[in-house]
Amino acid sequence: MTDYKNLLTLLVRGGVQFVVVGGVAAVAHGSARTTEDLDVVYGRSSSNIKRLVEALSPTNPYLRGAPPGLPFKFDEKTVTNGLNFTLITNLGPLDLLGEITGGGSYEQLLPYSLKVVIFGIECHLLGLERLIQVKRAAGRPKDLESIAELEKIMERANPTK
């Protein structure tokens, strides 16, 4: 089970620049679907990667689904040399995304995000329309029901669209 509250708290208190995307963002917009991981798009600046590594290291991030014992070290070099990481942490599954299809980087997504206060912390959540665009661009069959639901939510909010 993912401890979203503590994962988000670690990131925010660590000063990490990120936007929440994926299933958790969909739930925040009203989706009735469930999800089991937290997806965030993080800023790729060296200072942000440093903060990201410092914030998450106590949770022992490791490659999700990989056999134990691989020489994986969650440090600044690894994050800098990589881009997207599907991780398991002590607080649950976490997808760290440097870029997403159809949405791009943290800097490109930020103007399309909402600032929300949850559990007493302030974080950025991808806006509904952009979330729909990103899910459409990903082109995954498993997202079709989710996209349909998000578009219905959008129609509820803006009946003319």
């Binding site: 399309y112 909402l114 806006g127 329309e129 952009r130 665009q133 079709l144 669209k161």
Partner: peptide
């Protein structure tokens, strides 16, 4: 927040 400027065109499959 620039979301209001995004236009989502209907997709027949999603419909």
């Amino acid at each position: 927040m620039k979301d209001k400027t995004i236009k989502i065109e209907p997709d027949p499959v999603i419909e």
